[in-house]
Computed example of a mutant assay.
Amino acid sequence: MHFLDKELWFPPVSETHPSGIIAVGGDLSTERLLLAYRSGIFPWFEDGEPITWWAPEYRMVLFPDDFKPSKSMRNILNRNVFKVTFNKDFRAVISNCQTAKREGQNGTWITDDMIEAYCKLHELGYAKSVEVWQNNELVGGLYGIDLGHVFCGESMFSKVSNASKVAFVSLVNYLKDNHYLLLDCQVYNEHLESLGCGEIDRDDFMQILHYRPK
């Protein structure tokens, strides 16, 4: 495990600790965050803890072209219960993700400093959001980092049933239409698995991340 200071760098992911932690310290500057995502690394820590950077051995991902929404999900979309927008209110989405109650978690890993850092990335066009509305109220959404061929999903929230699923399906449809190779969901959880995501080896993930068409 490496300890970072003001110098802008990350070790190669091959040097990741078995826990999945690759480095501790540094800052949440735009430059460092972009370098992290482009290097297969993401920040994940709770308020009051040092900034902790991760590159787990197995990565939860979705290949957009392989995604097939369930029949029930297609029915929900066809009923037009929700309105979906992109990048209309990024700050509201990330703020709702911060305050969302999550099973098995006491607090949030989205600190106030992270909100400001990602809002800055949004202003620069790198961080993007999907909003789900019902009766003009924001009831669900998600956000992440757009690398052009890979979208790194960060968090989602839902205030009513199925709202986060609608955000997820809307994002995947956008990624399919624009020929993205991968949706990175970082680490395993049952909700992501229910949406069709699965784990791949870190080396395979890095190959896709660094792929450049000739």
Rank of each mutant, 00 (worst) to 15 (best):
S194V: 06
K128W: 02
S39E: 07
D65Q: 14
F82L: 10
L62D: 07
E137N: 13
D113Q: 11
E57A: 12
D203K: 15
L28T: 04
E193M: 00
R91S: 13
V84I: 15
T85M: 05
A100K: 07
T111H: 12
S70I: 08
L62F: 02
Y174D: 08
W54R: 02
D65S: 13
H122S: 09
M60Q: 12
F82P: 09
F63C: 07
V160K: 09
F63V: 14
R38H: 02
I94Q: 05
S39M: 05
C197T: 10
L171D: 08
D65L: 12
W44E: 03
F157E: 13
R32G: 01
Q105T: 14
L209N: 00
G107L: 10
E116W: 00
Y37H: 02
R59Y: 02
A55G: 01
H149P: 01
D66H: 11
I22D: 09
S161V: 14
E131Q: 04
V24Q: 13
V160A: 12
I51Y: 05
L8C: 10
A100T: 14
S194D: 15
R74S: 13
E137W: 04
R202H: 02
E199S: 04
L142Q: 05
R102L: 12
P50Y: 08
W9F: 15
G148T: 00
R202G: 00
F3K: 14
A55W: 06
I208S: 01
K214G: 04
N135L: 08
I200P: 06
S170L: 11
N80C: 13
W133R: 07
G26S: 09
R59H: 05
T16I: 04
I200K: 06
N96Q: 13
R59W: 00
P64V: 03
L124G: 00
W109F: 06
D177I: 08
I21W: 11
H179V: 03
G196E: 06
E199M: 02
Y143Q: 02
S70N: 10
G26I: 08
M206C: 03
T108K: 08
W54D: 00
F42V: 01
C197M: 11
E199P: 00
K214P: 04
A55Q: 04
T108S: 15
R38E: 07
S95W: 01
V13Y: 10
L147N: 01
I115P: 03
Y126W: 12
R59D: 04
E131A: 03
M1C: 09
G125K: 02
P64C: 03
L121I: 03
V172D: 06
G26V: 06
L77C: 11
R79H: 14
D112P: 10
F205Y: 12
K165P: 05
L138M: 07
S170P: 11
V139P: 10
L34K: 10
M156W: 05
E15S: 15
N106I: 15
G148V: 00
H179W: 04
I41R: 00
L175K: 06
M1I: 11
L147C: 00
I21S: 07
G25T: 11
E103W: 06
V132H: 08
L124D: 01
C97A: 10
C185R: 02
Y174I: 11
D201Y: 12
G148E: 02
L28E: 05
W133V: 09
E193W: 02
P12K: 04
P11Q: 08
H2F: 15
I110G: 02
